[in-house]
């Protein structure tokens, strides 16, 4: 597993190929469409993060000291955002997840499209991923 910084750098350099919001949109949609499906048993309210315009179901599991996420959303774009977050955070240690600054999000030039709306709750997803990390890190102590 590459370090988080390396993965973030790779994502940033992928996005540097795109000139426009339209190209970024299509890329994120493609990531969303490719996101591995979430086991139906996690599509319950207790796994749900409710946004204003979309819902996300997120599960985190620990294997060998690392956390692996799986997720789904009714919005393909939001699934694409989750895929980006999972590239960076899934498979990392709880400590690394808790420390993650996720500065790549700003470098992608997406803030104006995703963060200004309360529509999809990217911040809520990050918070939930960190909550899993916190739970697993305190459980292992």
């Amino acid at each position: 597993m590459s370090s988080m910084n390396q993965i973030e750098e790779e994502i940033i350099s992928d996005f540097e190929l795109f000139d426009s919001w339209e190209e970024k949109y299509h890329y994120i949609i493609e990531l969303g469409q490719k996101l591995a499906p979430l086991d139906e048993k996690y599509k319950l309210d207790e796994y749900k993060i409710k946004g204003c315009q979309s819902s996300v179901w997120l599960n985190g599991e620990e294997r060998d000291g690392k956390i692996y996420f799986s997720a789904d959303s009714d919005s393909t774009f939001v699934k694409g955002e989750i895929a980006l977050l999972m590239m960076v955070l899934s498979g990392q240690t709880p400590e690394a997840i808790l420390d993650a600054k996720l500065e790549f999000i700003d470098a992608l030039g997406l803030r104006q499209h995703i963060a200004v709306t309360r529509a999809n709750g990217l911040a809520a997803m990050i918070k939930q991923m960190k909550t899993y990390a916190l739970a697993f890190s305190s459980a292992s102590k």
Partner: peptide, 13 residues
């Protein structure tokens, strides 16, 4: 089709 996804698509246009 999720309304948000379609709305964002239209926004790109």
């Amino acid at each position: 089709v999720n309304a948000l996804d379609a709305g964002m698509f239209l926004d790109t246009k």
